[in-house]
Design a protein around this nucleic acid. Structure first.
Lengths: 118, 118
DNA sequence: CCGAATCCTGTTTGATACTG
DNA sequence: CAGTATCAAACAGGATTCGG
């Protein structure tokens, strides 16, 4: 399959791939969470501080979903008190290029909007 | 700004860029809609057929949002009956690389999940 | 053909307080 | 520290009907 083929009318395959990816990426929190882990393993509280305004409930819930989708790994260390560390799987790490493009585009999108409003 | 810098602790700028982008991209429909227009202008009914299972209400609503965010342009032709054509703005067209990465990743994500389930 | 308007439902999200 | 529990609010999405 060649992504973004130029034939035009038929883009069913692209649609499916896009919707697969979107199903995981969706929501306000998952991308920021992955982004906060991409530089190195992080603990619950660290992620919480990096992703501002996320409630513990949402963070817990989204981390669980990401783990189920094999994007991140949860490592429990039986210290006192308990510590937990999250890291990316290879699949999660393979999101890097996508994240780069998202950040690039997000930056130009923000600039474009600001320019228009003044 | 260098995207994905490797310093580690501080990624506030990246977070903001990501959340800007996400705000627009979010939801099940917007990316598929943009994807359906990226190959060339399309009319309402054409988009509706390309993005399977979308209701006219959601399509109308999401098109409006995309127009307000300067991603697409709505062109009204005063024929009989009326025809409407949607096309990408330069800002919309600049999503191309992001879409490519999304499709690439979506494909490998799907493959990874299938492999694990068998 | 291209939507707009209305109503309705379930899911998602959030604030807050609490636990091992 | 790393989460759960609970309750309320917000929102996404569908069905249907209507109009230019």
């Amino acid at each position: 399959m060649t992504p973004m083929k130029t034939t035009g009318t038929d883009c069913q395959y692209e649609m499916i791939a896009a919707q697969d990816a979107l199903e995981l990426i969706q929501g306000r929190w998952r991308i920021p969470i992955v982004l906060s882990i991409v530089y190195g393993n992080k603990r619950f509280g660290e992620i919480r501080r990096a992703v501002s305004n996320i409630s513990p409930k949402m963070l817990s819930q989204e981390l669980k979903a990401l783990e189920e989708n094999k994007i991140i790994i949860r490592q429990l260390y039986d210290t006192m008190p308990i510590t937990v560390e999250y890291s990316l799987t290879p699949l999660g790490a393979s999101m890097r290029q996508l994240l780069v493009e998202l950040l690039n585009w997000g930056t130009s999108f923000r600039k474009a909007l600001i320019d228009k409003n003044h």
